[in-house]
Design a protein around this nucleic acid. Structure first.
Lengths: 341, 341
DNA sequence: ATGAAAGCGCTAACAT
DNA sequence: ATGTTAGCGCTTTCAT
């Protein structure tokens, strides 16, 4: 309670206050080795009294152990990644590891910068979204010599391990379900994000499965910025103005899908009879809508949990055999907007 | 490209590869001091070739400078804090500071732990949500000797500086607007979070302003967990079953308010004629709903930006006179669910 | 059960 | 423009 000089306290201060060597103080503070109860108590009391906070920078340098796990994600603004983070947190909470988050805004250059910064803190592991990275990123990741888990997507080859779903398959499955339900004139609505590889892969899987049955997408639209719900309304209205024959709309995310649904309900359109709808992600929000949008769960929390488990396990036992490819399989939730056949 | 031993590279490796002293290599890598172009290029080439990533742990220890800003928030799961983070990021992007986020789940013990962990990395500043902290937290914050900005709320006394809005005032203003519009039988719907002090203060301000006009809340309900939109529907239905005379519902957040709105629209209730509604936060989502819920913007991005600016400014010039109390004043957005008088 | 010495990888400060 | 020296605050290792 008395640190007049505004210099942060060091072990030495605690040592001097107690007459115990720095080394023993360090032992007490880390619960290491044998320390007599008497000394332990004296040290703990002094540390608390002084308000000593250990310096992890020095500790990490001396021990070359850093209890940090770098987590690199493209965005915080659509609930998908916060949920992944929650999953990661849940697992790391029970270890002495701490997540440190970096955001790339879907920009490869920024990803490179964020990764570089992160690695310069010598974390014990890295969890990074996506499988598409610059050569430099891949090089840094392998050179780091630490466990690396690439998450969200499993359509590709990871540097080390990967946990996610196949977005191509997700797109294909949805296309099959739509065709099976008898829809034939299909429109696609998505985000204008050339660098969102997962959205791209869903789209590719989707068109590919349609093509296999001789069906082609008849209209498409992409948006960027603004409220997804509002954009979903607008885009849906515009698309149906333009292409009144469409009988199904596939949205690249649930929020724009929900906007579309609200628009069609306003218009008293028969959903899913006249027009069917489906989105992607399985967001919680959908539960509160007047009708439940058909969707597919992206397994966000589970991906976070599994990825964190892999890191934790590896650090605990570097020799352990570990699954390098964890592909979760989401199922279609038909909700109320996609006819069942 | 050739690091066979899996030891991370050091300055010394670059030094040996180039025949330039470690010190000069260090200068090149940090763009410090005078280095000849020839040497600079040689060093940069070697560093890149080897794939050298500086060790910030060692750098920070040697220079006692850590370009980290700790950001401590209660939750990632309701879009409020991700938006604050976005504001913080926007500002710190243009500096050499890096945010590091810790999440407390609204638990004081966890806040203490997260703060302790954070401070043990000796960050250059801290941004922390709320003004209510344990004595231990307040002690740590003042002892750290770094700029501290408490955000979101300005109803109280900060350790150092604060940026936010007055939630008490927000509640009062909304109460006044509701009374002015002629509503008289008011219900309140909120979250079951005794530790969400900002929600509590809004509630207090709200009831206080009602009381001043001799009005009391006639019914109230609190929820926890689940989809806020769905809960808003349920709670609204239940409350109106229970208290059919209510003519206004005040929700502690926009998501449950939106749920209530959807429910009332389903029921063909005349909003805002028969029943008025208001929420809090000004979430983007509202733009896409069939009607716009009345709300009050919580200035989330701006709070993040201002807080980060204070930290950046202080670090840049510790002497600068800085505003210690930045109280933003949100205005009521009447939307389509609160009559104007 | 406790202490002393060396050093983690870098940078500040001072040479040259 | 470049190099040398001495730490930063801890932990590892080895002694006692």
């Amino acid at each position: 309670m008395t640190n007049d000089t505004h210099r942060p306290l060091t072990l030495r201060d605690v040592s001097e206050a107690t007459g115990v060597s720095e080394m023993t103080v360090s032992r007490v503070l880390r619960n290491r080795g044998d320390v007599s109860d008497k000394t332990r108590e004296k040290v703990l009391a002094a540390a608390k009294e002084l308000g000593y906070v250990p310096n992890k920078i020095a500790g990490a340098l001396a021990s070359s152990r850093v209890n940090l796990v770098g987590v690199i994600i493209p965005s915080l603004s659509n609930m998908v990644f916060p949920e992944v983070l929650t999953g990661i947190n849940r697992v790391l909470e029970n270890t002495d590891l701490q997540p440190v988050v970096g955001v790339t805004d879907y920009q490869p250059e920024k990803e490179e910068k964020v990764l570089y910064e992160m690695l310069s803190w010598r974390p014990s592991g890295v969890i990074i979204a996506g499988l598409e990275h610059s050569d430099a990123c891949r090089a840094m990741l392998s050179a780091a010599g630490i466990p690396v888990v690439e998450i969200m997507d499993t359509d590709g080859k990871p540097v080390d391990a990967m946990v996610g779903i196949s977005h191509r398959r997700a797109g294909r499955e949805m296309a099959k379900a739509i065709l099976k339900a008898g829809y034939e004139h299909i429109g696609f609505l998505g985000t204008k994000m050339p660098l969102d590889h997962r959205a791209r892969k869903r789209f590719e899987g989707f068109t590919e499965a349609l093509a296999k049955e001789g069906v082609e997408i008849e209209d498409r639209a992409f948006y960027s910025g603004g409220s997804a719900l509002a954009k979903g309304r607008e885009m849906t209205r515009d698309m149906l103005d333009r292409s009144p024959d469409l009988d199904f709309l596939y949205y690249s995310n649930d929020m724009i899908g929900a906007g579309g649904l609200l628009h069609l309900m306003d218009q008293k359109v028969d959903v899913p009879g006249e027009i069917g709808l489906a989105g992607f992600n399985g967001v919680e929000l959908l539960d509160g809508l007047p009708r439940r949008l058909a969707t597919m769960d992206a397994c966000r929390q589970e991906i976070g949990r599994k990825a964190a488990e892999i890191i934790a396990l590896r650090l605990d036992n570097p020799e352990a055999e570990i699954e390098k490819n964890v592909t979760l399989v989401p199922t279609i939730d038909y909700g109320d907007t996609l006819k069942r056949w």
